[in-house]
Simulated scan of single mutants.
Amino acid sequence: MSLIANTPKPPYYAVIFTSHRTEGDSGYGQMAERMVELAAKQPGFLGVESAREDVGITVSYWSDLESIRQWKANAEHQAAQKLGHDKWYSSFKTRISKVERDYGI
């Protein structure tokens, strides 16, 4: 997988998930990999970028808001969200934004 998502020409949407983890892995790494694998199969998924250090940041890219709603409602994703709330995160924030412009090399 590329470190930088290969997104289409804007507009598209970004879901930005920022978190502080609790101590230990407790299955987190395996679940994170599974969620990327599962998201990649969802209609409207465009790509993902992630960095996990003191603050974890994962940005997933989507073609439209309905695709984001469907991903949030996915049963396996909801189970992972519950584990995150109960076990893996001391705090987190999700932001959804529309990408109007992008550029890079």
Rank of each mutant, 00 (worst) to 15 (best):
W71A: 06
A5T: 07
R34V: 05
M35Y: 05
E100H: 14
F92S: 08
V48I: 14
G104L: 04
W62F: 08
D54S: 10
V99A: 01
Y12C: 09
I96F: 04
F45I: 05
P10Q: 07
W88T: 04
Q70T: 10
G84A: 01
G24N: 07
E23F: 13
S67N: 08
K9A: 15
P8Q: 06
Q30T: 04
A79G: 07
M1S: 15
H77N: 11
L65N: 11
A79T: 07
Y12T: 00
E100G: 13
V15N: 01
R69H: 10
D54P: 00
E37I: 04
S26T: 07
V55W: 00
L65T: 12
E76D: 14
T22C: 12
D25C: 10
H77T: 08
E49W: 09
E53L: 11
F45C: 03
A5N: 03
D64M: 03
R69F: 02
S2G: 00
F92L: 10
A80I: 07
Y61D: 03
R21C: 09
E37F: 09
E37N: 14
K98M: 13
K93T: 13
S63G: 09
N74G: 00
Y103M: 12
Q30G: 12
S97R: 01
I4Q: 13
A73N: 15
E33D: 15
S2Q: 09
V99R: 02
Y89V: 03
D102M: 04
E76C: 03
P11S: 11
E33Y: 05
D54Q: 07
R52S: 14
S90N: 08
T18G: 01
G47I: 01
R21V: 03
P11V: 08
A14S: 13
E33L: 10
K98V: 08
G84Y: 00
Y12I: 03
P10E: 03
T7M: 02
I4R: 13
Y13P: 01
S19D: 08
V48K: 02
G27V: 04
D86T: 11
V59F: 02
K82W: 01
V48N: 07
Y28Q: 11
A14N: 04
H77R: 10
G44L: 03
Q30A: 13
S67P: 01
L65E: 15
K87P: 02
Y103D: 11
K98E: 15
H20T: 06
R52V: 14
Y103W: 14
L83G: 01
L83N: 13
P8D: 07
V59I: 15
T7K: 05
E76A: 09
A75K: 11
I68Y: 05
F92C: 00
E100D: 13
Y61G: 02
A79P: 00
A75S: 12
Q30H: 04
G84Q: 01
Q42W: 05
R21S: 08
F17W: 02
F92H: 10
G56Q: 06
E23Q: 14
D25Y: 12
K87H: 11
